[in-house]
Design a protein around this nucleic acid. Structure first.
Lengths: 141, 141
DNA sequence: GTGCTTGCAAATCGTTTGCAATAGC
DNA sequence: GCTATTGCAAACGATTTGCAAGCAC
């Protein structure tokens, strides 16, 4: 996605496309690893030398509130972010810590409805051992 | 549930039924409010004067690992615990912070399967505004 | 008495806050 | 110029860790 398109996307959510904001959105779109604030900061600090972690926090908070990205609380140590805002389960590997996307849930009617409550967000989390870690475990036994 | 039954339940998970452990399990079974460590500690400290928060942390960790209770990461500020280990969505009210149980999901085949990964745990989280908070908001408008 | 359990106190670390410097309209 | 944005440094707070004392079999 071009920088121009990234800017348009931010503007459509009433967000001023500052340099760090565009860079963070670009990073999230190009790296579907569900990074946390620290990963984003470490990755972008070399290219935006003045970047601070506070700005990354401010930005991902703003993006989540405006629906540009979604916030994942699958890992109790940290908060992760995903530029794909569709409803799809995430799988957390309890061995290596990686987070995988699962196929989108298109038929939301399969889930219990929220009853009298006003629903804003649905998150589905799976936890276990990913295929890669399962295999390397097997190699040792 | 009697203390005797609580003890049996712990023993069946290979957990020695010490006094704080029984008290914490009892509290979780009788209070379906999905408390966090601090709430459990505040509630039990008067009756077990020597209780420390470390013990509550140790205990809920042990219980979660052994499958006696489930750990909820729906609230990014804290970890909450639920003695009901069935797969049922939880609703977090973003206004008052309360966590509600939603009806159990009996047909898990409606969810995408975990593919090549080894699945240990499924969590479904809803966030929004609960009926109570929605109503009191209405009263002001 | 040996190993499990408890609990104090200190450390850790992700995140938030206060505030001053800066940039964009 | 005024407001939004950035970023440093300090504060915060939930959780973890190290370790010594206590308890159970």
């Amino acid at each position: 996605m071009t920088v121009e398109n990234l800017k348009k996307r931010l503007l459509s959510h009433d967000i001023r496309p500052s340099k760090p904001r565009v860079a963070i959105l670009k990073y999230l779109i190009e790296h579907r690893t569900h990074p946390n604030v620290d990963s984003i900061y470490q990755a972008l600090a070399p290219e935006i030398s003045s970047l601070s972690k506070t700005t990354v926090y401010n930005t991902v908070d703003l993006f989540s509130e405006r629906g540009v990205i979604q916030r994942l609380t699958i890992d109790d140590k940290t908060t992760n972010y995903d530029a794909d805002t569709s409803v799809h389960p995430h799988f957390l590997c309890q061995v290596c810590g990686a987070i995988y996307d699962m196929p989108e849930v298109t038929d939301l009617s399969a889930l219990p409805d929220a009853g009298p409550h006003e629903l804003h967000d649905i998150q589905i989390y799976y936890r276990g051992i990913c295929a890669k870690c399962k295999d390397s475990k097997k190699a040792y036994s």
